[in-house]
């Protein structure tokens, strides 16, 4: 049997111990781990830079849009104000009372034996109703009946155009003096009529149409 002698036994053991040096292994592991951490950090930094560039793009877009939006908001406010003001002004126009048709109605109701001496009319601010005081003289064989005829005719005609029509005598008195009617001395009576009525909404809108056209043409 051949004798085998390991003459390098000590060197090999030392080499083995050197290779298994925990400090060296630890430093090696630390370096590998450090490299992984560095790569991971780099990857995160890259993502952060990407997001930063996206943020810059979004902020640039906002910077571009912001003045337009501010202008648009101001314009929208102005437009809303214009729309609201126009609505209120339209309401004022539509709510107006038109006196000309009323005067025409009165003139159609007054018979030749009746003379209107005073007409005082006004719009009641609280409910937009109209009150008119008509003062005049009626001459006929029965002057009171002539005044009553006028009252009835006024009710009939005003009800065609207005609502809640009330025509009442505030005063009706016979006059001592005789009126000259077609060359004939005739008994006369002085009357004061109180007219109250409201304008119909549809009638008001219809009446305001020419005014709307006039506004458009200006």
């Amino acid at each position: 049997m051949a004798l085998q002698l390991n003459l390098l036994h000590e060197e090999i053991t030392q080499e083995r111990q050197r290779k298994r040096d925990p400090l060296k292994l630890g430093v090696l592991a630390l370096c590998v781990f450090g490299a992984i951490l560095f790569i991971y950090y780099g990857w995160n930094a890259y993502r952060t830079l990407q997001i930063k560039s996206q943020l810059n793009a979004a902020q640039a877009e906002w910077q571009r849009v912001e003045p337009k939006v501010t202008a648009a908001q101001a314009r929208a406010t102005e437009l809303r104000q214009i729309i609201d003001s126009t609505k209120v002004l339209d309401g004022l126009i539509e709510g107006r009372f038109y006196w000309a048709p009323f005067l025409a109605t009165i003139s159609h109701c007054v018979a030749p034996n009746v003379q209107i001496t005073t007409l005082d009319g006004g719009i009641v601010a609280s409910d937009h109703s109209v009150t008119v005081l008509l003062e005049g003289v009626a001459a006929a064989r029965e002057p009171r009946a002539a005044a009553e005829d006028l009252r009835q005719l006024l009710i009939e005609q005003l009800e065609k155009k207005y609502s809640n029509v009330k025509v009442t005598f505030k005063n009706l008195e016979d006059l001592d003096t005789l009126a000259n009617l077609s060359g004939m001395p005739t008994a006369s009576a002085r009357f004061v009529l109180n007219l109250t009525f409201e304008q119909k909404q549809a009638e008001a809108s219809k009446s305001s149409e020419p005014t709307r056209e006039a506004v458009k043409s200006k």
Partner: peptide, 11 residues
């Protein structure tokens, strides 16, 4: 359009 007669007196 923006004018309205509030009172009318005829004598």
């Amino acid at each position: 359009a923006l004018l309205s007669v509030q009172k009318l007196s005829i004598r």
